[in-house]
Amino acid sequence: MEMVLAIGIGVFAGSGVWLLLRPRTYQVIIGLSLLSYAVNLFIFSMGRLKIGAPPILSVPGVGDPATMADPTPQALVLTAIVIGFAMTALFLVLLLAARGLTGTDHVNGRED
């Protein structure tokens, strides 16, 4: 499972960075999205991978931490997803504005 996750993160991050370095704004935004997927998975994996372990106490009282998943990274991921989503939306608006104002979708605002 670790292998699958690691390869997944690697592929996301690799393609994200490659797209980020491309000259078209649409490629940049997709690159940013892929990069944020990679980052979100990475944060998630930092709570250690466990199968079938809920991040909450099933019975009220004191539970055994060994049978539980770490809830903190899951909360962090949730926050990061929301923020990342908002930023993508914001960048999308800018991308359209730039297309309208400069007449090109090059990141420098002119064809080179």
């Binding site: 980020l20 704004t25 940049v28 940013l32 930023m87 914001l90 960048f91 800018l94 991308l95 504005a97 730039a98 104002l101 400069t102 990141v107 420098n108 605002g109």
Partner: peptide, 12 residues
């Protein structure tokens, strides 16, 4: 245009 162009670098 100048601000949008600058934003296109600043934001990413």
């Amino acid at each position: 245009t100048a601000r949008v162009k600058a934003g296109l670098h600043y934001i990413p």
